[in-house]
Structures are given as structure tokens and as C-alpha cells.
Design a protein around this nucleic acid. Structure first.
Lengths: 408, 408
DNA sequence: TCGCTTTGTGCTCCGTCCGAACAAAACAGG
DNA sequence: CCTGTTTTGTTCGGACGGAGCACAAAGCGA
């Protein structure tokens, strides 16, 4: 009897995956740098780069367009193949969705927005999302290697269900990953002659953090904390060693119920003064004495207020109040997670911009150890970071083992 | 010119390390299981086991003492070589220290306690520790492959300094790792003809968690949270995928300043009602209306009280109060970290034992998502878990690459 | 005793990457 | 323009870890 091999240590034994990841994240602009980053010989790096080019994933330019200025033979330049394959990425938000085709390197190749004025059930919304995506695929004629979805809700793993999809009026526990998978398969978006790739879904803040880690403000971080607020509530995410930390059931970094104001208003969780109700756009508008508009416009409304009426003492006071509460929450998270960098998205990004010194001071004051207190606070820098993060999820199998993903 | 190799992807390319780790943690009792766990062929597993035996680390018994009951040829049994090499492990606590020689598998081969009645500076204490350890080595004649130290303080990385060594009256920022390293090198504890191995230091709760993960209540967990209290303050630790998560500067899981009682007593951190002052032995004794003894006996005093006088309504009320506060803190941590298991040490272990239902209910009630609420809460099971954890730290290089660590 | 099942062992083969020698492409200086 | 220097790319042989296969060994059950 022959032996049954249980593939366990099998994943990505060659340097192909790491090499692609280096080009993907822009850390290997030339073959010489790739050689150094991989820690292999020039011969190996050359073979690896050639194979990735053969697979149609990267481009190797032997004619460097510009002299580097340094001595020696110029190295071949490496870049993502602009006509290469894409993945289907989508983001669902309070009042609509956005579908896109995203290439390696976080390049958005094509994108299409969609609006939904009435709350619609997930099956309908995701059907529209996939229809928009497959339209884009037909128009561009690209090959599609995977699909990823960002939703404004915690996503339970391994089920792939949306647990608190507040903004989109779906029922708690909606199996968004399975629905999305089904719609994508129906649309016949992938190569017909090969096994269909896995389809992914994740929380939008988590995916924003992942995208920022690979292509934005989080580049180079080994221990990245991201905190962001959209319209209601506060979300968090942690990227450890380049991988999203989702916890054992996908529910890690649900930071909304940290206590930041013991005398604060009651929260639906039973406590009071939670970050969720003390540091989101609604809290900001209330603190500034403004009337809150419809749910899907709270972020825009807050952002406009902060930018256009910062001279108004009430607005400034509200900003300071939110900064202080956010700072308290961040300090608690820094004490627990000890990240090497913190990036802020949504309204928190604007608050940081409005008074960086104040927020840094609060965090430094309330987190232990001066060293942790000096953790850098940075704004998110990518447009559509959740969308790009959804694409990262879909690209991951290719990054892990390009050969397997493309030919096996 | 020949190429300069920068060793980067070099670590542990063969299956030797993973195999040793499986035997070390008891997950590979036989060669057949080892084959399955490694996901390699029987031939490879056989070669690997033989090599580990040659290195003197494990024992391969071809004569199984007991029939397995199942059909087929009985597999060779694998076990840690009882006469194999050891590491020097030590733990410093409020009123003394303990030195030990620890083999693979978490086996304490020899141990020696030490007492210090007056606060002593770290250089003196660690000198005594190493003296005790090298005495043990001389008595047993074992080969020593590394050294690890557990201290009741956060340890900053990569400096290896003790940031808040409250119980031992050392100055904040004492370079304990360097001092320990120096003393160990002076004592000529390692093989003379080989480069001296690295020496490690870590926080005692962190190391307890690591030990429990490999040999105790945390076995098999991928996402283990540990919370414990000794005499004063509360410590936390997280073991992710079998590795201690220390954060970017070693200060992760400083959980003492989570707010668990908004109206609580002020804490030195500037806030009030912190876990540190609301859920440690001192808080328990105070709540029970008892006079607190000397610092180094608070845990014993609390434990005795809980065991012997639980009938006393004041004691029971104090226990319930602490359980409620601890539960609030655990719920916050569960929301942030989403562990698959929580283990409790020190007084928290006893509190769990005194009323498991109450603590589980509080955590379930205050952590989001019923699913996370049902995260298992378990007591620590190992004696001297910090000590064994310190040994784990010292064993890690051997587990990562046995060949390199033993012969290179 | 004879199958049946499971595990251990001895070979060959293959893929990945190292190491070294050599070639190519730039710059600097005369 | 030519030459040496520097840096990078290329080619080829070989080491090494592990797969795959055939066969042997060691237990159970009838």
C-alpha cells in the first residue's frame, strides 16, 4: 500500500511566494533588492523573478529607464505586470456599495459604485455587487483569480457570518460569505477549467488596516493597530507580522466597549461611557450641539463641520472632548497590545489632523511607560482602503503559493 | 568576488525542530503520530527521530511496553531522554527566588529555593540565583544548553530591562537580562568550546502562560489568554500560535489599568477603579475587612482565607465582589483579543474555583456575542509554571534548530 | 497457520537552492 | 577613448531534504 500524504507543512516551500509579496508591497523595486530581502543568492532571485514574469504576474525590465546614480551594473527593475490578472473586490456601506477590479500592488483597475436607498436583504445587495463586478470583468477582459468582500460588521469565523451589520439593516448572523460565494460562482467569474478559488469576507476596518499595512501608512510595521469610525460605533484592527489578527472566532478588536467616560451615556451593552457611543460621529455632532442628519451621512457631516467651522468654539470644544475620549481608549489598547504604530481612519483621522499634539499627549499620558506613550499616531493614507483590503484577502492564496494558485 | 550570503530565511529548514517540539509538548507519543503530525512520509519521520536520538534529546523505544489494543504493527514510542541536557531556569519573587534545572518536556530535574529577607539589588540577587543554579549543575553533572529568568515585572524588549519591579524593590529599568547574562557567563555554566547561547528574561505571568500552553491547561490552544495575580497588581499574557506575544517593546498585556469599577479607588496611573487595585489579593483582603500582612504573603493569606473561611459572609461577599470586577476585566480583554481559551493563575485561579458559575456568567454577560461569551475559563494546572516558562524561553533556540544549537 | 492491517526501512528520484566562476553594464579617471 | 573598478546578471555542478515506492516486520483475528 502506498502512503497517504497529509499535506500539512506543504505551504509555500519555495521563495516564489515571498518574492511576489515583496514586489506586491513595493519592497523590492529591483532584482538586487529582491536578492537582499529574500536572503538568497543572485542566481536564485533571478530564477524566481523570471518565473513570476512567466506566470504573468510581474514585469522585469532589463533596460532601466533612469541611471541610479550609483556605480556598478544597474539592476533589473521589478514591477507588477499592469495587464496581469485581477481579483474582484467589493465594499458594502451604509447607503450603497462599491465593486472594483484590483490588481497586485493594490492597483484599482476599474471600479463601479452602486446606491441602495432602501435597506435591502444581503442576497439582493450581494447579487447587485457581483453583477457590477462581472460587468467590469466583461468590459476589461481581465482574468479574475479571486474575490473578497468588506462589510461594516464583525464577521464570525469560520462561518463567515455578519454579526452586527447595523448600517445595512441586515439580520444579525447573515451568512454573507456564503451568499457572496454563491453569487460569484453563479456569475462564472473565474476560469472554468480550474477549481474555483476560495471567496473571502471581512470586517471593513480590519480590511482597511490590512490595506494600509501593505500599501499605506502601515508599511513596514510589525505590530499595527488601526482604529477608525465610520458613521456609528468604533472599529479596531490589528495586523501582526503582516497577517490580520482576527482572533479565534474573527471577533478580535471589537474595541467599541472600552470604558472611556465613567459618567458617560449608557450603551446598549449594559455599561456606560463606551468608546462606541463616546467617540463616533454622532457623539461629535451631539457634543457640538448640531442636529444629526441621516445615518449614512454622519461621517461627511462631521468632517465638513470639523473642516469648515473649527473656528466655532462649540465645534472646537467638541473636537477636544472627542480627542480626549479617543485618547483614553487608545491608551488602553496600547497598554494591552503594545503596537509599534497606530493608524486612525474615518473621523478619528480628521480629529488627529485637527490637533495632533493633543491626541498624542493624551495617549502618552495615559499609557504606561513613556516608551509606549511615544507610539507613533498616523492618519490612514489610502483611498478606498477597505476595498483594497478585501482584494488583499483574495490575493492571499496567490501570494502564498503563486504556482499552485495559477497552474495547479 | 564571491557572494555575501545574508542569512534570513535560513531558520529551521528541516523538520528536526518541529519534530522535537512535538515530542517536547507531548503531542507525538509515537513515531506514527509524529509522521502524521509532521505531514511527512514514514521514511522522513524515521530519519528525523533517529537524528534526535543521536543528538541525545529523545529516546526511541522499539519495544513498546504495552500493546496498544489496535491492530497492526506497534509504533516505536517517543519520549524525552531523561538523562539529556538541561537549561538553567530561575524565578525571582517577592521574598526570594528559585533556581532549577529543567529538561525538555518541562521536567524539573533539580531545584533549589533561596530566601532574601531584605530588598537586595538585582546584581546581588542574580548572583545568588546563578550560584544556586551552578551548584545544581555540579551536583547533577548535566550539560546545560541555555538559561532563562522570570521576574515579577514587565520586561522591556529588546533591552531586557525590568520596568516596574515592585515586589523586589529594584530600581525601575534595571537591566536584568544583561546582569543575568553576565553572572551566567562568569559561572562558566555552558560548554566552553562553543559559542555561549543567548540568555533570556521575561515577565513571570508571560512565562507562566507559555508553560501552561506547552505543558498545562493551555495545551492545544492557538489563542491563549492568561490572567493572574500574585501579591499586588494583575498581570496578563497572550500566547499566539505557540509563541508568546510580547508586543513591539515587550509591554503587551499590561492589563492592570483596565477600568473595572468607575467609582473605585484611585490608582497611581491617574485613573480610578483599575483592575490592578480592584482585583488583587490586597483588594480582596480589604473587601473582606481583614488586615493585610507583609507584601510577600498576601497571596497565601488570601488563599487561606478563601479556603478556610468561605462560610463567613464577609469573605464570600468579598469573593463575589472580586469575581464581578475580574469578570468585567476579562470581558474587556475577550472583546479585544477573542482568545479561544482563558486560564487564570494566582488568586484568580482560586476565585474561579470558589464559584466558577459566577465568573463565567459575568464574562458571558459582558463580552459581546454569545459565542465569545462562552470562551472556556480554566485554572492553571502546573506547579512552578513561571519557572518552567523561563526554561521554555531558554529551550526555544534548541526547538527552532536542534542541529545548530547542539553542534554548530 | 494464514491473512489483514499498520508501521518501519532501504532505495531512487526530484526540486530548491548554494557556491563559484564568468560575463555584462554601468561609472571614474586618465 | 580606453582601462580599471564596482555592481549585477548568468551558467553550471552539486548538496541536501524530502517524496515515492517496494518490501520487510510485527502485531491482531479467525
Amino acid at each position: 500500500m502506498t502512503q497517504t500524504r497529509t499535506t500539512r507543512l506543504e505551504r509555500g516551500r519555495s521563495a516564489l511566494g515571498p518574492a511576489l509579496e515583496l514586489v506586491h508591497t513595493g519592497r523590492a523595486p529591483t532584482r538586487a533588492v529582491l536578492t537582499a530581502e529574500l536572503g538568497v543568492t543572485r542566481a536564485t532571485a533571478g530564477a524566481v523573478a523570471a518565473e513570476l514574469e512567466t506566470l504573468g504576474l510581474i514585469r522585469v525590465d532589463s533596460r532601466p529607464r533612469s541611471a541610479t546614480g550609483s556605480q556598478g551594473r544597474p539592476s533589473h527593475r521589478l514591477s507588477i505586470e499592469p495587464q496581469g490578472p485581477v481579483v474582484l473586490a467589493a465594499q458594502v456601506h451604509a447607503d450603497g456599495f462599491r465593486a472594483a477590479l484590483v490588481g497586485l500592488g493594490g492597483n484599482i483597475v476599474a471600479t463601479a459604485p452602486g446606491r441602495m436607498t432602501v435597506p435591502a436583504d444581503p442576497a439582493h445587495v450581494l447579487g447587485e455587487v457581483v453583477r457590477a463586478g462581472s460587468d467590469l470583468l466583461r468590459q476589461t477582459g481581465r482574468r479574475c483569480l479571486g474575490a473578497g468582500l468588506a462589510v461594516p460588521s464583525a464577521v464570525a469565523e469560520p462561518q463567515g457570518t455578519a454579526l452586527n451589520p447595523l448600517h445595512v439593516a441586515w439580520h444579525a448572523g447573515a451568512p454573507v460569505r456564503d451568499i457572496f460565494t454563491e453569487r460569484v460562482r453563479e456569475a462564472a467569474v473565474f476560469d472554468r477549467d480550474r477549481p474555483a478559488p476560495a471567496v473571502f469576507a471581512g470586517n471593513d476596518v480590519n480590511l482597511a488596516a490590512l490595506a494600509e499595512h501593505r500599501h499605506g501608512a502601515g508599511r513596514g510595521s510589525r505590530d499595527l493597530l488601526c482604529v477608525a469610525t465610520g458613521h456609528r460605533g468604533v472599529g479596531g484592527a490589528l495586523v501582526l507580522d503582516g497577517r490580520l489578527h482576527t482572533g479565534s472566532t474573527g471577533l478580535a478588536l471589537e474595541v467599541g466597549h472600552l470604558t472611556v467616560n465613567p459618567e458617560g451615556r449608557p450603551c446598549h451593552c449594559g455599561s456606560r461611557g463606551c468608546l462606541d457611543v463616546e467617540a463616533d460621529p454622532l457623539a461629535f455632532l451631539t457634543a457640538a450641539g448640531r442636529e444629526a442628519g441621516p445615518e449614512g451621512s454622519l461621517l461627511r457631516q462631521s468632517r465638513d463641520l470639523l473642516r469648515d467651522e473649527y473656528a466655532d468654539p462649540a465645534v472646537r470644544a467638541a473636537a477636544h472632548l472627542l480627542i480626549d475620549r479617543l485618547g483614553l481608549g487608545l491608551a488602553g489598547l496600547v497598554n494591552i497590545l503594545n503596537p509599534d504604530r497606530v493608524i486612525l481612519g474615518g473621523l478619528h483621522r480628521e480629529l488627529l489632523g485637527s490637533d495632533p499634539g493633543r491626541l498624542r499627549a493624551v495617549v502618552a499620558d495615559r499609557s504606561l511607560w513613556g516608551q509606549s506613550g511615544s507610539v507613533p499616531l498616523l492618519p490612514c493614507t489610502l483611498d478606498h482602503n477597505s476595498l483594497i483590503g478585501a482584494a488583499e484577502l483574495a490575493w492571499q492564496p496567490v501570494l502564498d503559493d503563486p504556482l499552485e494558485a495559477l497552474t495547479a
